[in-house]
Computed example of a mutant assay.
Amino acid sequence: MGQQNRIQKITILAIMIALDFFLSPIFRIEGMAPMSSVLNVTAAVLMGPVYATVMAVVCALMRMLFLGIPPLAFTGAVFGALLAGLLYRYKRSPWLAILGEVIGTGLIGSLASYPVMVWYTGTTTNLFWFVFTPRFFGGAISGSIIAYLILVKLVKTSQFQRIQALFFKN
């Protein structure tokens, strides 16, 4: 039974990675990736912090390698996925997952982007600590609202509950 559960978890993770990688560039506003936040919150609620973070890391690396997106793909997704998953695990509330995404991506991710982009571009010209914050907050808030609207219906389905039970065994 253990091997089958691992295969199911990896399969769900692969599907979430594919959805994130495919949807994020389609519904992208310059400097904002609301679909990344949709998938971060959904993954946090469905799979928990570890798998949601793995999804965010893999998708960020794929975006950087295949789509030429700068390291903002990494800083903009990973902190939100991790914090959303940790807060959801704490109380099992989608609102806490949303709060984790908004704080993780909107605040922590945006602030972590400054030193990363200084390193990446080799300059501080036109960069200051809060340069990414408005767009990261905008993407995280709008994406989290969309995720909540999706999760309201999705969490009631037996398939979602079955998959969630696979990741959240008590």
Rank of each mutant, 00 (worst) to 15 (best):
G80C: 06
G139A: 01
I69N: 08
F160D: 07
I98N: 04
F136K: 02
A140G: 14
V41Q: 03
F74E: 05
P49T: 02
M32Y: 04
L13A: 15
A43G: 08
V78I: 12
P49K: 08
I146H: 01
L151V: 14
F74C: 12
G85F: 05
L154I: 05
K169M: 13
V50T: 09
G80W: 00
I141A: 11
I103Q: 05
T157Q: 11
G85L: 09
S144P: 05
I108H: 06
A81W: 02
P34W: 00
S158I: 14
A52P: 01
M16D: 01
F21W: 15
L154Q: 05
I145L: 13
S37D: 03
I145A: 05
T123D: 11
P71K: 13
W119G: 08
V152N: 07
G143P: 00
P25G: 11
T157N: 07
S113T: 09
I29W: 00
W119H: 08
S36A: 13
L13W: 03
Y51W: 13
I17N: 06
W119S: 14
F130M: 14
A18Y: 14
S37P: 04
Y51R: 08
L39V: 03
F160W: 14
V78N: 05
I145F: 10
Y90I: 10
F74T: 10
M62Y: 14
L65G: 10
T125R: 15
M35A: 03
S110I: 12
Y90R: 13
L23P: 01
Q3S: 09
A165H: 13
L67H: 13
I26L: 13
G2T: 06
Y114C: 12
F128K: 14
P115M: 14
I141D: 10
L13Y: 05
R135V: 02
A73P: 01
A52G: 09
V155R: 10
V57M: 08
A81I: 12
L107W: 03
S113E: 03
A165S: 15
W129E: 15
T42L: 10
Y148G: 04
E101H: 06
F27S: 01
F167A: 08
K9Y: 04
M35G: 00
V152Q: 14
I10F: 15
L19Y: 02
I145D: 05
P34Y: 01
A84T: 05
L13Q: 07
K9P: 07
A56L: 06
L19F: 14
V152S: 07
A112V: 12
